[in-house]
């Protein structure tokens, strides 16, 4: 008997395909060499471990749905917007590493904090416009709040030595509702494309199983 023939017999047993004749031959071989049983046991064990491991590894497939069949141009347009956002996010990530709570005194808009801003009347300055935007956004439910910390990007002493030129991000937390969520992947040609993300819903409507 060749080694290949034994391998076939073992693999048929492992896969539950061995016939009576296969078993008879396997037992005859094992009668001559007890190592056959050891090989069979090892193959069974390896197969169980591998099935469990591969099953877990490919489990991610269950959450990968087909993207919505949107037109190619729409894909491209969304990508362009998304790519800009991604770049800002990357740069923001770098800047966040140097997050500093700005301790300089900024000029508050007339009317104080956004919550206290007067939303009526003419816009007196950019800061006033921002305050009115935040107040109006909060009423509409779109704006949650402005984050108290700012992200420092750059500082530079002024030429006259009277202070610093400070560049920073303001962080405004907002809420929106969208029909779909997308993440950016790349197609088989390496071109970035949006792919719909499905976030599993966890039901909170729990009833007593008993």
């Amino acid at each position: 008997m060749s080694e290949g023939e034994l391998d076939i017999l073992i693999t048929r047993v492992v896969d539950g395909r061995a016939s009576h004749e296969d078993w008879r031959r396997l037992e005859a071989l094992a009668g001559q060499d007890a190592g056959v049983w050891r090989d069979l046991a090892q193959a069974q064990r390896d197969d169980q471990i591998l099935r469990r491991a591969v099953g877990m590894a490919v489990g991610v497939a269950a959450s990968v749905e087909l993207p919505a069949p949107v037109a190619h141009e729409a894909h491209r347009a969304r990508f362009q917007v998304g790519e800009r956002t991604r770049r800002v996010a990357m740069w923001g990530g770098w800047a966040a590493a140097a997050l500093v709570t700005l301790a300089f005194v900024s000029k508050q808009p007339p009317g104080g904090t956004p919550q206290q801003a007067n939303t009526g009347g003419p816009i007196l300055s950019a800061a006033d416009a921002l305050s009115k935007y935040i107040a109006q956004g909060q009423r509409e439910g779109r704006v949650i709040n402005e984050m108290p910390d700012k992200v420092l990007v750059n500082t530079q002493p002024l030429a006259d030595g009277q202070g610093y030129d400070v560049v920073y991000f303001r962080l405004i937390m907002e809420r929106d509702r969208v029909p779909d969520l997308y993440r950016f992947s790349s197609d088989e040609l390496g071109q970035p494309v949006p792919v719909r993300v499905v976030i599993p819903q966890i039901s909170t409507n729990v009833t007593n199983p008993l």
Binding site: A57, V58, V60, A61, S63, V64, E65, L66, P67, R183, S185, S186, D187, E188, V193, V195
Partner: peptide, 11 residues
């Protein structure tokens, strides 16, 4: 794996 699988899904 999931990134690559999404690429296949797109194709």
């Amino acid at each position: 794996l999931d990134d690559l699988l999404q690429e296949v899904a797109l194709a």
